[in-house]
Simulated assay, not measured.
Amino acid sequence: MSWLENSYMARKGMARGNSGETHQLNGEKQGKYHYVYGPYAEPVLTVKPGDVVVAETQDAFEGAIKTESDSPSEILHMPFLNPQCGPIEVEGAEKGDVLCVHIHSIKPRGPQPVGTTALITEFGGLVGTTNTALLNKPLPEKVKKMEVTEAGVKFNDRVTLPYEPFIGTLGVSPEIEAVSSLQPDYWGGNMDLPDVAPGAIAYFPVHHKGAYLYLGDCHARQGDGELCGVAVEIPSTTTVQVDLIKGWSIAWPRLENEEFIMSIGSSRPMEDAARIAYRELLRWLCADYGYDEAEAYFLLTQAGRVRLGNMVDPKYTLGASILKRYLM
C-alpha cells in the first residue's frame, strides 16, 4: 500500500483519494485575481470532492517587475501583493469540516527569466521594518531575475539551485473576516512553508460554506525563513486535487507527506508560532495515535522537528512535525 492510499485524505475523504473531473482555471476564467481571503467574492469555480483544478497563478507581483532595473517601491502598490486564484467553492463543505488539498505539480510558466527576487524597502528579516522601527537607512532596492526550469534555478553563472517548488499562499476563507493575502493564520494564507510542495496533502479547517479555497504566490524554491522577504517568485501552472473530510475537527492547518505529519502555526513572536504548531501536533498524537498528553509531550521533546516558513510576514509561520516511522 502506498502512503497516499493510507493518507488521511484517502481514508477519511469523501472521494477516498479518487480523482474526479478536471477543471481548468486559466487567467481568462479567473479574471480579476484577489488580494484578500474572505467570503465576499463570488466563486470562480465550483468543484466536487475528488475534483482536480489546474490553475494559472501569477507571481507575487502579478508580473509588474519585469527587469532588474525596475524599482519595486515605484512599481508596486502595497498591499496589493500575492494575487490569488479563486475562490474555489467545494460542494458540501461546511463549517467544522476539513478541506484536503493534494498538490500534484507546480510548473513554471511564461518567458524566461521567469524567476524574480528583490530587496524591498522596509521589508525583510535583517532590516528595519514598520513593525521593527529603526533609525538605520533602508538597504538599496535591488531586483534579481533568474531562469527557472524544472531542471533547476540558475542563480548565477556559478550556482544552479535545485527546483523545489511550493505554494507560498494557500488556504480557505475565514468565517467573516476579509484578510490580506499577505497574512497567515488559522485559515492558512501566506505561510511560505516549503513543505507545501508537490506530493504533500494540506488540510485546512473549513469556516465558511463551500470552503472557498484560494491559492497563489508559487515559489521555485526558498531557504528557511524567506530571509530577504522574497523567494524565487514565479508564475506557475499548479495542479491540485481537493477532497473533504467530515467530522474531523482541527484548529490550524495540517500537512502530511510520505515521511511525516506536520501541524502549522502562525503568530508573533516566533516562539508563539512554534508553541501553536507543537501544541496542535501534540493534540494530533493524542487524538489519532493513542498517546496521552504526557507521553506525547515526551515524544515530541525527543523527536519533534520545526520548519521555519517565514520570518518576514505580518505573522511568522512554523511547522512542527514528526516522522511517520515513529508513529507505527
Rank of each mutant, 00 (worst) to 15 (best):
G115D: 05
V101T: 03
A93F: 06
E89Q: 14
E122R: 15
S105P: 00
I120L: 07
T117Q: 14
T121P: 00
K107I: 06
S105H: 01
G92S: 09
G110L: 03
G115H: 03
E91S: 04
L126W: 15
A118D: 05
V98R: 12
G115R: 03
E94H: 07
P113C: 00
V114W: 01
H102R: 14
A93S: 07
G125Q: 15
G115Q: 03
P111V: 03
S105I: 01
K95R: 15
Q112F: 07
G92N: 08
E94K: 13
D97A: 10
P113A: 05
V98M: 14
T117L: 12
V90D: 11
T116A: 08
I106A: 00
L119M: 13
T116E: 07
V98S: 06
V101E: 04
F123P: 00
G125D: 12
F123N: 03
I120E: 15
G92M: 11
R109Q: 01
K107W: 10
I106Q: 04
G124C: 04
T116M: 14
H104C: 01
I103T: 07
E94Q: 10
Q112N: 08
Q112D: 11
V90Y: 13
G115I: 03
P111L: 04
G125I: 11
D97C: 11
I88L: 05
L99T: 04
T121H: 08
A93W: 10
L119V: 15
H104I: 09
H104S: 04
Q112E: 13
G110V: 02
E91M: 14
T121F: 08
I103S: 02
T117H: 12
K107S: 07
I120P: 00
V114A: 13
V114Q: 05
V90M: 09
I88S: 05
V98W: 12
C100R: 06
V90S: 07
P111F: 01
P113T: 02
Q112Y: 06
V90N: 13
P108L: 05
L119S: 11
T117Y: 14
V114P: 00
I88Y: 06
P113I: 02
H104T: 03
E122I: 01
